[in-house]
Amino acid sequence: MSWVRITGTASFPLRQGRKVVIQEHELAVFNLGNGKYAAVDNACPHRGGPLCDGIVTGDTVVCPLHGWKTDLETGHVVKPDICVRTLRYEVQVEDGMLSIKLPAAASLY
């Protein structure tokens, strides 16, 4: 497990997502407002849609392809009512720099 420094929080506009690529692995990172950020795998559990391009509503994101809604606090899909989830990563902000906690680097491949 290790923290990876990504970039300044200014790159993450309010209530929007951005794609973060770490060695070919895609994450979607969101600015949820009030200093809250979230990171999940950039693939909707439905058909792999790019979650970073979804509309953020409160603490959830709506996939742009078919409208599945994922809770960014837990990674669980909340619409439709189905028990699947997206992997979630811990995020921290220090001195305006956003970092993400990744499992051992190797497991990303």
Partner: peptide
């Protein structure tokens, strides 16, 4: 422009 970028980590992976 931020709409089109994909972000890469500033720090190195350990």
């Amino acid at each position: 422009r931020g709409q089109f970028v994909q972000i890469e980590p500033a720090g190195r992976l350990q």
